[in-house]
Nucleic acid binder design. Structure first.
Lengths: 235, 235
DNA sequence: GAAAACCATCAAGAACGTATCAAGACAAAA
DNA sequence: TTTTGTCTTGATACGTTCTTGATGGTTTTC
């Protein structure tokens, strides 16, 4: 848990290629580099998969059986900014220019070296980070900026201790849902403290003193008696 | 090409190449495509020009007489997100991977086709639209000019040691966010020092003595106890 | 409604994290 | 070589956070 990343997931890559051998190769290579790989064997399926999977990056073969590659790029670009790297056997310059102008981010001619492919993928993904708007949780007068690790109440910045912040972070990322005592205890203090709800209560109390307008009548950090705690999410 | 563009100006392109013939060629080609072209014949001049001209895109030859191309990329990336397209005679995959991982956006092997170059330039520029971060950080009385490696407090220039500057640079490029001890340690001292926060503390202390009005009551370089440090960003 | 289980809060000491000074090691420049 | 500046390390004092037990309030169960 250190670097800020787009989401929290390992990057998803969609591979659109009609040759089974290439799909297999890329699948292996990419997965062993820590990516989650989705496969599609023609243009229509690729478009459908892109909409369904919302990949972080698309590897697209230009020579598809059903649709022209440039057409696929154009259709994708109608609704998505996801980086597209084109893979193609065509050396003709017109093809490259066409693909790039249609909105592709990069163009690699087969056969390509795997290290170069991976470097270009890293580059494209790196560029997307930072453009993504950072999610800020808001409810009541409370604002929690997870990316900046900043909490404020009614515009006033608030100082939280590490444990307090960690509790709040868990609640925010499951806003609206109940987190049981055991869930909170195990994720913050570890399995050994499962039967010691006291330490959790003290921290919840301290947290409320900081983030609630009236700590004695909580409106955000709610107790679910006998179960756990819940953070009220705004409608 | 009437896309939305960064500023109001025609895009400025900086060409860094030691071969006069290539500079002439690119200059002609790019100007006739509507770009404003600036030229530099080696790495140091290129870095200076980038800081002075603030180009929208940089075309960089890897084989420069003074600095290694990858080094130039790294130095640029310390303060600038400007797209960099590398032009090189080197075919070796290692070179490509190195340049891309250092932060280059694209890599073209000479000889390249002019239409393809133009297409890649259009692509890179298209992607950048909307992001034009000011490379001078200001907050409190502090000014940090990342391009010129210049720091001043209340108009007075300040002398920082390399490590101090590096810490400040990291904080500035993540202004407002908390950088954990581990992030700072690993990026400045390397993974081996992850468990030695002492050396970081001493340096933070020294840094505060130089950039804070009242070092005993920090107003810019804030401690997040148990977590790390944060540079206050102005609203 | 009473008993039992659960929950909130306070306060104090222990444990842990942080700031600063100063001395020695080291490296680059004169 | 000496000088100069920088980095590392140790010692020490200071500050914050965590844990724990005591006490009293609240909710659930029967």
């Amino acid at each position: 848990m250190d670097e800020t990343r787009p989401g929290d997931h390992p990057p998803r890559i969609l591979v659109v290629d009609d040759e089974a051998a290439i799909r297999r190769l890329l699948s292996t290579v990419l997965e062993s580099s820590g990516f989650v790989v989705h496969l599609a064997e023609n243009g229509s399926l690729g478009l459908a998969a892109a909409a369904a999977v919302r990949p972080d990056l698309i590897l697209l073969d230009l020579g598809l059986p059903d649709l022209d590659g440039v057409e696929v790029i154009r259709r994708l670009r109608e609704w998505s900014q996801t980086p597209i790297i084109v893979l193609s056997v065509r050396e003709r310059e017109d093809d490259k220019v066409g693909a790039l102008d249609a909105g592709a981010d990069d163009y690699l001619t087969k056969p390509f070296g795997v290290p170069e492919l991976l470097a270009r993928i890293r580059g494209s993904l790196r560029r997307v980070v930072g453009q993504a708007p950072e999610p800020v949780f808001r409810s009541g007068g409370l604002e929690v900026d997870l990316a900046r690790r900043l909490v404020s109440l009614a515009g006033q910045e608030i100082q939280l201790t590490p444990t307090e912040y960690e509790i709040l972070r868990l609640l925010v990322t499951h806003a609206g849902k109940v987190l049981t005592h055991r869930q909170l205890l195990s994720r913050i203090w570890g399995a050994s403290h499962l039967e010691q709800p006291h330490v959790l209560r003290v921290n919840i109390s301290n947290l409320r003193r900081k983030i609630e307008r009236d700590p004695s009548r909580p409106s955000l950090l709610l107790t679910e008696s006998g179960v756990g705690y819940r953070l009220r999410a705004e409608p």
